[in-house]
Design a protein around this nucleic acid. Structure first.
Lengths: 193, 193
DNA sequence: GGTGCCATGTAACGCGTTACATGATTAT
DNA sequence: ATAATCATGTAACGCGTTACATGGCACC
């Protein structure tokens, strides 16, 4: 959903071939460790963009070794890019997998909710630790952008941890709630009317 | 990535057919407005789970109208579910689309970064407003879980807004940074060697 | 001679989406 | 009548993934 547009933006800056696109992307985002776009995605996206008329082949470069197919952005591509810049980005899904896990655990009775919360908490603490460690190891003069990314991740992790504390304190309230269809339609063996 | 496991959990609680699965899912998550799982996904996931041996058809119910194929969870399914419960959930991607947009705008020179930030800020404010409004309209006695979901979303939105303020204050520092390959390989018309 | 980078792709799959199609029952 | 809900699916696509395959070049 975003790589597509990012590739357009990079082609708007300068015509490139696939490999250069990937390198430029990684440079922008602070290395492949942060956001690794696989070659397969680069090339498939590129052909899709070409089929849509948003980029066009702009010649082939061949100094030594394999051919390098240079792509450039088209007018339609610039319009698509402008639309992307003009609209707001949806914040990370409220579709929360952990919440789902907790509710499923509660409803099915298969998992202990306190245990689930504790698991998740240590998991997030670990992530937070990794991030602060990573943050302390980079040069703010050269990789400032990456610091911002890490800061953002840390802020979200802290929010998640606070949220976990909150729901843990109220788990008993949730459990007292009328669970949706606990045994409403008990089903045994198959039957026909 | 998560619907699959949620369906397994619901089948562990009680054998069901596709439509009931969907209804139970929506009930857990607070209505289809919060997390709408489309029928197509239910049925395709169900057949995939069946092919994997994690669920099995448990008979057909037919009271009136169409057949209802009841599915039950298998042993392999219960194991898969237990694994899901045992592992931690990855926090929402640090792969941030807005960050990408900002960097692409900066690098390509096509968009004004301050404008981008302002756009995003109003967008997020709008979302935050919607959420607090929605939160005030629900009964905490019956839909407590949904309140938690909304609280979480609000906390993340606030974090995002604080982050936007932060990077806006430092945009000039980013701009002073050595941009990755601005015009390193100027390319005109195609050429061979 | 091996390792690793440069550079290109194809094939197949997983998850999720939209759009389409069918047909019965129930409510207005 | 017609609209909504119940209940089932298929087809095709978009994005992203892993795994695989090819081949030249550079360096140690």
């Amino acid at each position: 959903m975003s790589v597509r547009h990012a590739m357009l933006g990079l082609l708007a800056q300068n015509p490139r071939h696939g490999y250069e696109l990937r390198a430029a992307f990684h440079a922008l985002v602070g290395g492949k460790k942060n956001w690794d776009v696989k070659p397969a995605q680069i090339y498939t996206t590129l052909t899709r963009l070409e089929q849509g008329g948003f980029v066009a082949e702009d010649g082939i470069e061949q100094d030594s070794g394999p051919e390098k197919r240079i792509y450039g952005i088209t007018l339609a591509g610039r319009e698509l890019l402008a639309e992307w810049f003009a609209c707001g980005v949806e914040p990370g899904h409220q579709q929360d997998e952990f919440f789902l896990k907790l509710m499923i655990g509660l409803a099915s009775g298969v998992a202990d909710p306190y245990q689930l919360i504790q698991n998740q908490r240590t998991h997030l603490f670990q992530k937070l630790h990794d991030i602060t460690k990573q943050r302390s190891n980079i040069d703010p003069g050269r990789e400032l952008a990456m610091i911002f990314l890490l800061d953002k991740a840390a802020m979200h992790l802290e929010a998640d941890l606070r949220w976990l504390d909150m729901i843990e304190g109220r788990l008993d309230e949730i459990k007292r709630q009328p669970l949706p269809e606990p045994e409403s339609k008990p089903r045994g063996r198959p039957r026909k009317t």
